[in-house]
Amino acid sequence: MRGIRGRSAVALVALTLGLVALEDPAPPLPSTFVPTAALEVSCEACLLVGPDGEVLFERAAGEALPNASTTKIVTALVLRRSALPLGSTVEVSANAANAGGGGVDLQAGQSFVARDLLYAALMTSSNDAAVALAEAASGSEAAFVDEMNALAAELGATDSLFVTPHGLDRPGHVSSAADLALLGDALLDDPLLARIVATETYEIPRPDGPISLENRNLLLGSYPGAIGIKTGSTLGAGEALVAAAERRGVRLIAVVLRSTDAASDATALLNRGFKRLRPTTLIGAGERLGTLFFPAGSSTGVIAAEDVGGLADQSTLAVEFLVRRDLTAPLEAGEVVGRLVISAGNERIARVKALAADTVEVPGTSATGRFLAGFIRSVAGLIGRG
């Protein structure tokens, strides 16, 4: 059957007098999904991605825009692929020190552990730390940027072009919400990087006293389930944020570009996603889903034998009815007439028994009856994959 749109139930295939017809849709199934409410966000471009990359909300998601310090997601990914040990010492060059900004004022000639600079780059958006790491990993900032662009292309981030490892406004330095969702997902797949972006506070030990870092991601510690990822802000990019949260094993990624309030926009996106994907009854036991006709003119309603619940975007649901090969009348109410296969996207959620809702007394045991029952099954199998 075709996927349910706007949460309408799918009618079962109905045959009578040798003609195939789809029954009028049944009333909507019980649900907590509210698909029509407008989402008020200020972002010029934004995206909400659910499990398996499913797009739950988008606005200009493929538009290439300045993306500020969300760039450092790629900086961190390239660094992790480099040969630079995170325990090694990195000396800050004059070029790195001149980058400035981001909460850690590095001075030329200072030395830091690479791991500490990575924390500074991801937590406080330290631009000088990003450049120092790039030079240490690849020999020069330009060579490192080439590796950033190569990695982005490899991961499928085709809207992006990076000019620096820090993300300050530069002509041609752009990414898109769609690309940043891909790149953010890749970062979260690295256990160390995932731990860093989820860290709220960190101290870098120094001979003259520790440097305290505080994560600039306002969702950490305030939004239930927040797990990172990266903030950003420049005049050209406005406020930018790639934010992730996880609840009940379901991870969502929200990307916000050119926003006036990135934390608020990301919160609204994540709230929409978790509301849309929260567990609910998809099909109720005993719920009448359609009608099965027999050639003699008799028919029975078809119901699910048990509740089907799940965590799914209910606008993607599809129900497939597989009739019993040997199905004939008469039938008693409650007798098994086949199976219901419930799917969301490419994932099968459940397979449950389909029962006759009514007693069918008129016999239908002829060869024609058995042929029609088999035909119902083949048609249902074809239509149900839509």
Rank of each mutant, 00 (worst) to 15 (best):
V90L: 03
S298G: 03
L77D: 14
L252Q: 05
G249F: 03
T201F: 13
L382A: 13
H166D: 09
G62Q: 10
V92G: 07
A268Q: 10
G374C: 00
S160V: 05
T368K: 12
S378E: 15
L311M: 14
N215I: 09
S111F: 13
A14C: 05
K72T: 14
E332F: 01
A285M: 02
E347P: 03
L29H: 09
E44W: 12
E203Y: 13
A254T: 10
V360F: 00
D169G: 07
L168T: 04
G167W: 01
L219D: 04
A26K: 00
S212H: 13
R80Q: 12
S222A: 13
A266G: 08
P363D: 15
G238D: 01
V92F: 12
G369C: 06
T234W: 12
E214D: 08
A266S: 12
T328E: 11
T199M: 03
L331C: 04
R348D: 04
I196V: 08
S93Q: 07
V379R: 02
L311H: 08
R288V: 02
L182M: 09
A11Y: 03
E239D: 09
L282V: 13
E23H: 09
V10L: 10
G338S: 04
A333F: 07
L155T: 06
L122P: 01
N67I: 10
G297W: 06
P165A: 03
A318H: 07
L122K: 04
Y202Q: 15
A244M: 05
L277F: 08
